[in-house]
Every structure is written in C-alpha cells, then in structure tokens.
C-alpha cells in the first residue's frame, strides 16, 4: 500500500504564499506529473513530500502512515534530482549500493540488487566508473538506478530530464516510462514540459500560483481543460478562447445557458474550413500561414481576437487570404466569467 494523500498542505515564506491549501490524492502505483510554469510551487510541493522542506500546515499520508512529522530518512521515499546528485567520490556500484549499505542490508543482497538495477538501467558495464567519467545521460541512469535499488514506496523526480539534450531526453523518456511502469512504484514527477507530462503521466496535476487547477488524465486535461489557464498552458499552440458566435449556432447549448457563456474554448485542430461563404461559418482573415510538416498552422484575425487554426498541410492558403471557419460542435468547450469550464 503506497497511495499518497496530501491534505490541505500550504506553505508560506514570509508573507508570500507559495502553496495555498493543496489537496491531492495519488493512487497506489500511479504516475502523477506535477506540471506548471516556473514559480507555481510544484517543486516546493515535491520537496515537502520528500521532507526536505516543511509545510506551514496540512498533512501527508503514504498508505496508512502519517509522514508529516517524519525526517526524510524515515519516509521510505527515493528522489531523483535535476542535477542527478550522483556522489562524485564513489563508483557507480557504490552509488547504487549507498542506500542499501546505510540500512545495513546483507552484502549478498546488496551485490544482487546492484547488478539487477544496473542491468535494468543499462549501466552494468559502468559499475567501476566514477561520475566524472560518465556522460549526462549515464549519470541520469545512475541516479534512477540508485533510487530504484532501495525499493522505495514512492519515487519522486524533480525535472530529471531537463539537463539532457533533446534527442537523449526523448530516448530516456520512453525508457523511463517502461521501467517505471514495470517497477510498480508510485511516482510523482515534476516538470514544466507539457509534452513530457502528456507522455508519461497517468494523471497530470496542472498547477498555477500555488494551486492545483486541474488533476486529471492527460486526455481529459487536453480535451476538457478545467480552466482557461489549463487550456492555454497545455497544447501547442494553445487553445483558442473566443466569445461565443451566434453564426455557429451550437445545438447543444440552450438559449438560457448560453447567456452565461463568457468564452468558447476551441483547439486549433477542431475547425472546419471553407473557401466560399457558407451558412454557419464565420469569415476570418489569415495573417500568417506556416507549414509545419504534418499540418499548416494559420494565425488569423477573428473579429477583435487572434485565433490559431490548424489545417491540412496541402490546403492552399497564403498570408492575407480570407477563409470561413466553423468549430466542430462537439469539440467546443464553454467557460464562464471566472474562466471555469461549464458542464455540458
């Protein structure tokens, strides 16, 4: 049992509120990503779970254990740091064995565990090397192996891939996904990279200003952003937020409720495009047309708003052209004045 329950955890630093009463429930074996812009409090929350920083109030439970007042070493948590924190004065094997030696496991068990995790992370031929002799990617592997060797109940990862170059990051991401899925460890992973979050997470907690905006599986985060912030933070380009347009005549909205609709959220790929004026379509002027390989991204003026529309890459439309668009009715999300998703 290693579900995690975070209840009303808040953190003030002087007068500054870094976390505002966070509630978060992570199921056993779940991979949760804390995603948000820098300064949103995601790293602070992770460090509070690790016990490296103290919460101002609130409590944290792992399984049946209340860990709020425990020292880091008693929490049965492992952490992978952004700068890897591989001990430079120890070999790879000694690094992996460190946690096991501290808790005085038998030497036979330690040797077996070192071999096993090193093989898992493909560093078995580097066991006698020091971290100075390793590349960034290999150090990352040592850090993960060292964390997994102790068989923690919870694995915390603080932007572990952000120091790797793009290609290596892609490779490590795929590898981490399979290894962590196989290890059955409950994982909390902090990143500001939405692609990383979407690819790895079972559930993503999108954070902003010390609060959780939405906590849901990636597809729900993408297709049903709970707030305008989530819609504009996730997706590249972000979701369009435009005032409701009568021409589109959405059948799903009753007359009464559409009165409260402040903004419609529409993903760039969820538009139908016509070249001729068509009923229920709205005219827009294309300002910039960019071919991005698999599709073409149009930046267009719609009334007073700028919107982004993705169209097939072979569609002939240049800068300054006029087109007519209509969102796919079932893909439109409606937001109220406070920027929250209205239930359909």
């Amino acid at each position: 049992m290693s579900a995690i329950q975070i209840s009303a955890v808040s953190k003030q630093f002087g007068k500054q509120e870094i976390l505002k009463s966070i509630d978060l429930e992570i199921r056993d074996k779940e991979f949760t990503v804390l995603l948000g812009p820098s300064g949103c409090g995601k790293s602070t929350l992770l460090r509070i779970i690790a016990g490296l920083e103290y919460e101002s109030s609130g409590s944290i439970r792992i399984g049946e254990r209340e860990i709020t007042s425990l020292a880091p070493r008693d929490r049965r948590i492992a952490m992978v740091f952004q700068n890897y924190a591989v001990f430079p004065h120890m070999t790879v094997a000694e690094n992996i064995a460190f946690g096991l030696r501290v808790r005085k496991d038998s030497e036979a068990h330690i040797q077996r565990k070192v071999k096993e995790t090193a093989a898992l992370m493909h560093i078995e031929d580097r066991l006698d090397h020091y971290s100075g002799q390793l590349s960034g990617g290999q150090r990352q592997r040592v850090a993960v192996a060292r964390a997994l060797a102790t068989e923690p109940e919870v694995l915390l990862m603080d932007e572990p891939l952000s120091n790797l170059d793009a290609l290596l990051r892609l490779e490590m991401r795929a590898e981490l996904k399979t290894i962590l899925a196989a290890s059955d460890t409950t994982t909390i992973y902090v990143t500001h990279d939405q692609v990383e979050a979407m690819s790895l997470a079972d559930r993503i907690a999108v954070m902003k200003g010390g609060q959780i905006e939405q906590y849901a599986p990636p597809s729900e985060i993408y297709h049903y952003p709970a707030t305008e912030f989530v819609g504009s933070f996730i997706g590249n380009p972000p979701m369009n937020f435009i005032p409701p347009d009568a021409r589109w005549n959405h059948p799903t909205r009753s007359e009464q409720s559409s009165q409260q609709v402040h903004k419609c959220g529409i993903r760039p790929e969820d538009f139908e495009v016509r070249f001729e004026p068509t009923e229920n379509f709205a005219p827009v002027r294309v300002l910039v047309s960019e071919l991005l390989g698999s599709h073409k991204q149009l930046t267009a003026r719609f009334g007073d708003e700028m919107i982004r529309v993705n169209v097939p890459s072979d569609l002939e439309v240049g800068n300054g052209g006029d087109i007519h668009i209509r969102p796919l009715a079932e893909k439109v999300r409606f937001y109220d004045h406070s920027g929250h998703l209205m239930s359909a």
Binding site: A50, G51, L52, A71, P72, R73, R75, I77, A78, M79, F81, N83, A85, F87, P88, H89, F98, G99, V102, R103, R146, T150
Partner: peptide, 24 residues
C-alpha cells in the same frame, strides 16, 4: 542535493556529512 540525496537514502545529518560531504 548530494546531502539531501543521502538523507533520503536513510542517513541522518551527521551520517550524510561524514559519508558524503567530508570525503569531498
């Protein structure tokens, strides 16, 4: 982070200092 990593792997402050910081 070297010390923090040692704490999370079961060291108290003094052990982390002696095993990680002092040798360095």
């Amino acid at each position: 982070e070297l010390e923090e990593a040692a704490w999370l792997m079961g060291c108290n402050r003094w052990q982390a200092f002696r095993r990680v910081v002092l040798p360095l």
